[in-house]
Amino acid sequence: MNVFRLCGDMSHVFSIVVLLLRLRVAKNASGISLRTHELFLLVFLTRYTDLFTTYYSLYNSCMKIAYILSTASIVYMIRLSDPICTTYDKAQDTFRHWAFAVGPCAVLATLTHFISGEGSGYSLFVNIQELLWTFSIYLESIAILPQLILLQRYREVENLTGNYIFFMGSYRALYILNWIYRTYYEPGYRHHYVAYFCGVLQTLLYADFFYYYMQSKRRGGRFSLPT
C-alpha cells in the first residue's frame, strides 16, 4: 500500500459518500444516471468474485464489500425508494448501455483472455473468474459514459454531482501514479497491461470534465458545461 493507492481509494469512497448523501438529503435523483450505477454494480460483482477464493487483506475485503453494498443501495434508491425514484428522469438517461458498453466489453474481454493465452492450464472456474475480472476492467473504464452524456443534456451541473464526478475521476488518475510507483519500488511486480490501458482511458474520459470543473471552481461560480 502506497500513498497514491490509498488516496485513490479514499477518493473513490468519498465520491460514493457524496452521492449517497446527495440522494439521502436532497431526496432527489435528477441529473444522476441510474445506468452508470448499474454498470458500476456489475463491475464490482464481476471483479470481486475473488472475495470467496483469494484473501489479500482485511482492508481489501472490507472495501470490496463496501463498494458492492453502497453501489447496490444507490441503485436501489434510484429505482425503488420513494420519493427519490419519482425524481429520476428516465427519459434523459438514454445511453444504450447493453449494446454499447456491456456487449462490447464482454467480446473484448473474451478476445484478450484467449489471445493472451492467460488461463491456459487452469481450471474452468479460474478461467471464468479471470474472464470476469478482465471484463470488469474494461467495463469500469467506460461505466461513467451514461452519466457524462446525461450531464451534457442538463448542462447546469449541481455542485454535489460535480464533486462526485471529480472524485471518481481522481481515483483512477491516482491509481496510475500508484502503478508507476509500484513498478519502481516493488521488485517482481506483475504488470496487467489491460488494467493500465483501461485506467488511462478511464482517466482521459474525465479530462474534459476536469477542465470545466476547475474553471468553475476558480471562478467560484456556477458550474455549467458548454454546448
Binding site: Y56, G119, V126
Partner: peptide, 10 residues
Amino acid sequence: LKDGGSKDEL
C-alpha cells in the same frame, strides 16, 4: 495467476 500486480488492488 490471481496473485500479485494490480490484482491485489480494488
